[in-house]
Design a binder for these strands. Structure first.
Lengths: 108, 108
DNA sequence: AAATCATTATAAAATAATCCATTAATCTAG
DNA sequence: CTAGATTAATGGATTATTTTATAATGATTT
């Protein structure tokens, strides 16, 4: 039997994961992800829910978009954002457990 | 039934999680965590395994220590580091899956 | 269709934070 | 005291973040 944890061994993968993590590791960006969740939200909704300037949100959205964390769909005037990979949300739920000591499955 | 994901709703928790994430979101620090794993390692061992200057490692260790990700034990001359919460390692394993596309349970 | 409003994105400037190399300081075994 | 191991402190370069201002695009109004 091997070690009980599957960590990251390839240098290449470590750098990849660190890059992706960095995209999430900012309070505003993490909040954006939590606000969007498994739904779709347009920029203005995100601005209202997160609470900072539209320009600031737009720039953080750009970072999440560039790193592939968020995907977009344009409808007329508006741009709708959604989380690209559902496992990202699982990951965030797990982070809440680990970093905030919130037991698993405790609903909203 | 509520939403199918348990995200982070409290502002306080979001900031907490973002802080912890930021500590991990650096290639050298992530590598340090992967090298230490569920064992204990002294600074020199980490330096050898990670591959940068001892001073640089020490600075990154300080960050992980301050954020509570790593704990230390001093034995004589040496300082041994270990990961404080085993779930942090689970999280890293999960990140490998999500960010690097490595299927779960693929051993070393 | 021109003017205007609403929505989103981009650019530039200012500020803040991070990172790494160097050097100094601590600590402890021998 | 000396050497080895580690942490702390400093400086400068680089990168992130925020703010302000402006541009682009589609919808509404007149």
């Amino acid at each position: 039997m091997e070690a009980s944890f599957n960590l990251i061994e390839k240098q290449e993968h470590i750098e990849l994961a660190a890059r992706a993590l960095k995209a999430i590791a900012h309070p505003l960006r993490l909040k954006i992800l939590c606000v969007v969740g498994d739904q779709e939200a347009c920029v203005q909704e995100i601005v209202d829910a997160v609470g900072t300037s539209q320009s600031n949100i737009s720039q953080h959205l750009a970072i999440l978009r560039e790193k592939g964390v968020l995907l977009t769909r344009k409808d007329a005037n508006r741009v709708y954002y959604r989380v690209g990979d559902a496992r990202t949300l699982q990951l965030i739920g797990m982070m809440r457990e680990v970093f905030c000591g919130v037991p698993q499955g405790s609903g909203h």
